[in-house]
Design a protein around this nucleic acid. Structure first.
Length: 419
DNA sequence: TCTGGGGTCCTAGGACCC
DNA sequence: TCTGGGGTCCTAGGACCC
């Protein structure tokens, strides 16, 4: 049964806040968190926002000015953020069983309380999450996911909680919301709608159904209906297993040599294979890609897709096939900047299709071997056991000049409080 | 020097089948 | 002389999300 009310709970400035929780000494210094390779800004504290720093700003461009303002930059520390996220989600489960973890810092909650109890409930969520994790969340409540998103935006501007269920005049609220800020309306649709004079969420909700469907597909129509309070996006408590698993990254430095290129590739394949096994799947096909920098004068990029001889989650097999594909697209004399692998055609590792005329398969013996590999990784860290092909990371790994400690997941990095 | 990474869904159009 | 129509599967491309 669809719950009558939906809350969207979202952590404010999530990555930057995670860093701050463990560094109270930073006070109100501006904080940014950088993407892989310390490339560009992916999160900002309120103080950094106030300095005018934008998401996606290349760090090297703002660094000077930022540091002059006593700003502090952190390399991204996904181990820490992932663990903090898990703590927030667990806290939210204290309030309802219906939790859809939507992203690392957001969850939709199904609520069945009477409408009058919703605002105190939202407040209780905020104070409990703050007390248990140190993080501040905003809570928006509405009758559909899209309206909960709208409420959440308003919550951020106001006191941190916003309940549209008890709001008497939804139309006037929606007339104040820019259509481009509606969940599901991106920059393209935003421009298209504006060119037809549709500038607010209210106007979109009142537009003709057929017209919306034609211009924005059924997804756009669902968005418009959700704005009217008709639920079209269900709460998804148990997300389906992923249909594709991608690992792709820029190197810490350029690579020209094929054999050297196979090392990061192997290590991305190993990471993808771990994710594959975590969701108890096997992959039936894969796609390998490589590219020079986009800004390179002699740019080259290519990708090749291959159906695997048999579906597997065995790291060694996947690395071998990935290397074959890579050899097909590699061209000498380019300075490569990134490569990647995508595992597709995923299926359960319990039901396996036998293929005629192929005598290999992902059998019990391989499965057990992989279980051991995963156990070692969970006990000793993901880099404890590697395939030889992954090499020893002679410089291609990520540049991370200022990663914070993994405070909550590594005994050797827990915070120490002198007493 | 230096510009992120990982996903989803929908639609149109081609290949192929009966 | 005449050259169907409906269905499925796959892929590429486009839109979106965080």
């Amino acid at each position: 049964m669809t719950p009558p009310y939906i809350a969207l709970v979202d952590c404010n400035n999530f990555y930057a806040s995670c860093e701050r929780v463990f560094r109270p000494d930073l006070g109100d210094r501006p904080i940014v968190v950088l993407s892989n390779n310390d490339g560009c800004v992916v999160a900002r504290s309120p103080e950094a926002k106030a300095l005018g720093i934008q998401l996606g700003d290349p760090y090297f461009k703002i660094r000077h000015a930022f540091e002059r303002c006593r700003g502090l930059a952190f390399s991204s520390n996904y181990t820490l953020y992932g663990d903090m996220s898990r703590r927030v989600m667990e806290t939210l489960r204290e309030f309802t069983d219906e939790v859809e973890v939507y992203s690392i810092d957001e969850a939709f909650l199904g609520l069945r309380d009477r409408a009058r109890g919703l605002s105190p409930l939202a407040e209780a969520m905020r104070t409990t999450v703050k007390r248990w994790t140190g993080l501040t969340v905003s809570v928006g409540v509405g009758t559909t996911k899209t309206l909960a998103k709208v409420a959440n935006r308003l919550a951020k501007r106001e006191t941190g909680a916003c309940n549209l269920v008890e709001h008497g005049d939804l139309a006037s609220v929606l007339s104040e919301v820019d259509v481009g800020d509606v969940w599901g309306v991106g920059p393209r649709y935003g421009r298209m709608l504006a060119s037809y004079g549709i500038k607010t969420a209210l106007q979109l909700s009142q537009a003709d159904d057929q017209w919306v469907r034609r211009r924005m597909t059924v997804m756009g129509l669902r968005t418009a209906m959700e704005l009217r309070g008709i639920p079209c996006f269900a709460l998804d408590e148990q997300p389906m297993p992923k249909k594709a698993i991608v690992r792709s990254r820029q190197f810490g430095r350029d690579i020209v040599d094929l054999e050297e290129l196979l090392e990061p590739l192997a290590s991305y394949v190993a990471a993808a294979a771990r994710a594959l096994r975590r969701q108890r799947s096997v992959a039936g096909s894969m796609r390998v890609s490589l590219a020079t920098s986009r800004y390179d004068e002699y740019a080259y990029g290519n990708a090749r897709f291959g159906v695997l001889p048999w579906a597997t989650a065995h790291t060694g097999e996947l690395i071998g096939w990935a290397c074959q594909l890579m050899r097909q697209i590699y061209r000498p004399n380019y300075t490569y900047r990134r490569c990647g692998v995508m595992l597709t055609d995923l299926s359960s590792d319990r039901i396996q299709q036998e293929r005629l005329f192929v005598d290999g398969r992902y059998d019990e013996k391989k499965k057990v071997l992989m279980q051991v590999v995963d156990q070692v990784a969970s006990a000793w860290g993901e880099d404890a056991l590697k395939y030889a092909r992954e090499g020893l990371d002679v410089g291609w790994g990520m540049r991370q000049h200022s990663r914070s400690p993994r405070y909550t997941t590594r005994w050797d990095e827990v915070p120490v409080i002198p007493a």
